[in-house]
Design a protein around this nucleic acid. Structure first.
Lengths: 333, 333
DNA sequence: ATGAAAGCGCTAACAC
DNA sequence: GTGTTAGCGCTTTCAT
């Protein structure tokens, strides 16, 4: 593969001149510039990234570590990050941690080793090595889920998911459901905990008693939620409505209801987090809590880029709000 | 950030020994090994990837260039690629070309510049620079869509989408629909063309006449399909069934039917490509052509890794088959 | 404005 | 088994 040396020889100039011409740095004689450009084109020259990065001690790539590429919420974040990054010449590498602390750890190592310019991280929260990042002053921003307190003191972009969960639950209560239950993610995952907390807030505000029997916690996955729903509804004390913590889970919940011969809305009120594209299509249409995922991505990317250029700026926490979109699945008729 | 030099000094050995100890190459005295490991741990040493890659002239990262991160079909492919790659210590960077030739071109450049070990590409097909890849012998495999003939002669993993489209259309005809229409992607995108071809095959086999009035081609997006559906159904000669080319489009089609007060299955038979997780949930459940997306990914990754280790192996084309899953949306009652 | 040369951090010959 | 050293391809002083 052609190197800068080949180009220099072909153009009859020094490598320094080639470098300058190609990067538009300092001033180079226009004649030489075009000679260099021609030579480069003829040789099909493509700069060697690793060499350049090694020398410059910097890269124009951001790492985005998320927990599930198959979840539309995270892919929307990804798009937001990408759009902002690309606009200023950065590339984004997407790393899928699969809600698995080991994979997350591994990707953090990769990010450090590849000396990426910064990372956007949605942490699983459990015993990871985020401190590796913070310790060496790697620019980074946490999204969707804050870092464990130890690390703290970094830019963060969150959604006020607790408040949203409270509103969604209150909505179900207002709609006349008497025993609202909750299907949320594993303990320790911040969003899962917050949604549960918001759910409890609403019960308290409405003077309903909280019962652990109406709550299930499982992986943020369809099948876990499916099982949990069957389980919840086969008890004596069964819920007549459910707050569901994300759209992947909602699929499992709705499938379970259908199997059990129950109609969402009429028999069991349902509100789920995340406005998946299919939510309006099911029958009845699914009521959702819509999170500004794309915006999370754009804001995070912007913060990250800012921090890369100015490492001293004081860390901020941005909290975006979610909106309840009531549809048929939260009305009895 | 600590370098190999710091570790060497701290451990009282040469950098070569550190390198050997850390990489498990050749044999190093066990005592020295542990001294090195301790020193490295104490310093929080993380190897410098670019430096290593520059020296080794190789990287353990694969690039996966797909056209839509938000499409479950592609994210399943991504998972397949990832799982195989990770098992052997490779990282995967996901690049979203957004069905945009410019972005695709740009990502191909990035892949070359970063000297990735290989690339898995689902090309938009239009005037791209894939030849840059093939010209310099970059290991690569095309998925979902073959490369333009010029480039050719590389590993390819496809789905027999034409055959599947034919079967799906035949199924609709068998179910008693008389005027089957088709909503597919833009001309030039191979999968879109093939699905249309399969549709025509089926019409021919059933001795139905083909009418351009029953066909619409739009972006592989929900809103395009929405518009197309409204358009198709507001003609005099209107279809009573539709073959839809992917699940993103299916969302638009189903939304349009609902708006028009039409019931899928009963009023308009529908079969869509890709078994999205929500497909069984809509009412009636959506009949689909299920493509083995995850398997496309695993096969492609395996082929790519093979080729990386043995550049001389003769290129193969693997064609996987899709399966029709009939559900309620393709029955009149 | 241009060239010579040093050096980023690492690995792999090559010596010993 | 270990150390010395050259050099991967590039950018960037430092001269001129």
């Amino acid at each position: 593969m052609a190197t800068i040396n080949d180009v220099a020889t072909k153009a009859g100039v020094s490598t320094a001149t080639v470098s300058r011409a190609l990067n538009g740095k300092s001033t180079v004689d226009p004649n030489l510039v075009s000679r260099v450009l021609d030579a480069a084109a003829e040789l099909g020259y493509q700069p060697n990234g690793p060499a350049r990065n090694l020398r410059r001690q910097e890269t124009a790539v951001l790492a985005l570590i998320i927990s599930d590429v198959e979840n539309p919420f995270f892919t929307s974040i990804a798009r937001g990050v990408e759009d902002v990054a690309h606009a200023v010449g950065y590339s984004v590498v997407l790393c899928n941690s699969d809600e698995n602390p080991d994979k997350e750890r591994r990707y953090i190592d990769v990010a450090i080793q590849e000396r990426v310019a910064g990372v956007v991280l949605s942490t699983t929260g459990a015993s990871t090595n985020v401190d590796l990042l913070t310790d060496r002053g790697m620019p980074m921003v946490a999204v969707d889920r804050p870092l464990p307190d130890v690390a703290a003191d970094n830019d963060t972009v969150l959604v006020d998911t607790r408040q949203a969960a409270k509103e969604a639950t209150a909505h179900l209560i207002t709609q006349g459901y008497h025993h609202v239950g909750c299907v949320t993610g594993p303990a320790g995952i911040r969003t899962a905990d917050d949604r549960l907390a918001g759910y409890r807030d609403a019960l308290r505000a409405a003077r309903r008693k909280y019962s652990a029997k109406l709550v299930r916690r499982t992986e943020y996955r369809s099948d876990g939620a499916h099982q949990a729903t069957v389980d919840l509804l086969s008890q004596d004390e069964r819920p007549d409505a459910l707050l569901v913590a994300n759209s992947t889970m909602a699929i499992g919940v709705l499938a379970a209801l259908t199997e059990l011969g129950l109609k969402s809305g009429k028999d069991v009120g349902v509100v789920a987090f995340d406005d998946a594209p299919w939510a309006p299509l099911v029958n009845p249409p699914l009521s959702v809590v819509s999170q500004p995922a794309y915006e999370i991505g754009t804001v995070a990317a912007q913060l990250l880029l800012d921090r890369i250029t100015d490492g001293t700026r004081v860390p901020t926490t941005t909290t975006l709000s979610a909106t309840l979109i009531p549809r048929g699945s939260s009305t009895k008729h």
